[in-house]
Amino acid sequence: MKVPIEHYILLSTVLFCIGVMGVLLRRNAIILLMCVEIMLNAVNLLMASFSTYHGDAAGQIFVFFIMVVAAAEVAVGLALIVMIYRNFKTTDINLFNKLKW
């Protein structure tokens, strides 16, 4: 408990921004999903550190629920990617611009 809470916040911020950068930089839809996972994990880490520093178990329960949502999201997202790949033979998101604008 010697590490100040600010360092946990900084670490989470950096991880979250790396995830955002990945979503902006990459074009492969699967790597985009992985970057979303990095962002979710940054938030999870911050929630767990607040929970420990304030002695409140609710934060860790929220982390638990975020993991549930992340697992469901990955399952549905990967099913969508498999279906898109089956129809178009690519996972390049820049080609799927029918819903843009």
Binding site: L11, M34, E37, L45, A48, S49, Q60, M67, A71
Partner: peptide, 27 residues
């Protein structure tokens, strides 16, 4: 490892099982 430092052992185990065990295999 950060979760273990934070005394959140259950979260660490669940994290490894769910992410490294299930989600990464799916990817």
């Amino acid at each position: 490892g950060q979760y273990i430092i934070l005394n959140a052992q259950f979260l660490a185990i669940v994290h490894i099982i769910v992410y490294a065990g299930a989600i990464m295999v799916l990817f």
